[in-house]
Design a protein around this nucleic acid. Structure first.
Lengths: 144, 144
DNA sequence: TGCTTGTTGAAAACGATTTTCATTGTCGGA
DNA sequence: TCCGACAATGAAAATCGTTTTCAACAAGCA
């Protein structure tokens, strides 16, 4: 997605027989405002600012639709809850997670070799990957 | 761990005030026999071959202890269940997951730059990372 | 052997996510 | 512009993996 204008997303949804509703607009805006890797609960809280009646279930359903339509991506840190990123054109990005305060930072460069090399030894055709980095942010870093 | 002999693991557990029990032995053997990235349910089923009375709860508790003591590592594929790998000396490994049949293969080489470079732009101190590759295994690969 | 404490199993509790179902609202077409 | 088909919604209940509770048990040191 190049620019995640509501119109652009609406068009993408409509293309699949889906509809753009006030609720989805609110979730989309929350997603854009919150930055990357937020969980459903957080997104729900934020989206309620725009549409107070919004239910958490609808947030889950909306995120599911967004993921299916390529509007958002799920992210997993292994703490038992799914986070979501708004998709952006020009590819994926990864995350740095602070093990102390939980802060999350984006990593735009991907230092991995091209997909086709990654699975070659095992004969796999790699189509996607997921990389998360864990450590300590500047604020929490053990001052050496 | 160099060689995951029961004795070696027992020693490591005892070192932390833990005890080696029949149940833990069964889980350890199941873990070794099953290969990498298996979920608790699968490990439970396998371990029951050695100790039929084994409860699923005990498997969870044992895996938790193994992870805390560095005997095993948790792995997340994002399908809402945790998988476990026996730890091995000489470092971590990653996985190739077949999106069609679910087959899992190990990737021993890590093509990532050294940790200290990865978080530098954001000022993070990276201490660990997690990389999973998704795609299609030789059997499921779309023959080009 | 005896005792201290970690461990176990079954049942119940949990928390995130999904489903059910009746109601509401979007949007393509008349 | 109005209509109607059908996607979307909200609340409550259901799922599902995992964790906690609690009384009975057993590993390993004295």
């Amino acid at each position: 997605m190049k620019g995640n204008g509501v119109e652009r997303v609406a068009a993408r949804l409509r293309h699949r027989g889906r509809r753009m509703t006030v609720q989805r607009r609110a979730v989309l805006e929350a997603l854009a405002a919150l930055g990357c890797a937020r969980d459903a609960e957080t997104i729900h809280a934020r989206a309620r600012a725009a549409y107070p009646k919004l239910g958490l279930v609808t947030v889950y359903r909306t995120l599911e639709a967004f993921v299916a339509d390529g509007v958002a991506h799920p992210v997993f840190f292994g703490d038992g809850r799914v986070r979501y990123d708004l998709s952006e054109d020009g590819g994926h990005h990864h995350h740095l997670v602070c093990l102390s305060c939980g802060r999350i930072a984006r990593v735009d460069e991907c230092h991995l070799p091209p997909s086709r090399r990654l699975g070659r030894p095992q004969g796999f055709t790699v189509t996607a990957h997921r990389l998360e980095l864990f450590g300590y942010c500047p604020r929490c870093a053990p001052k050496a």
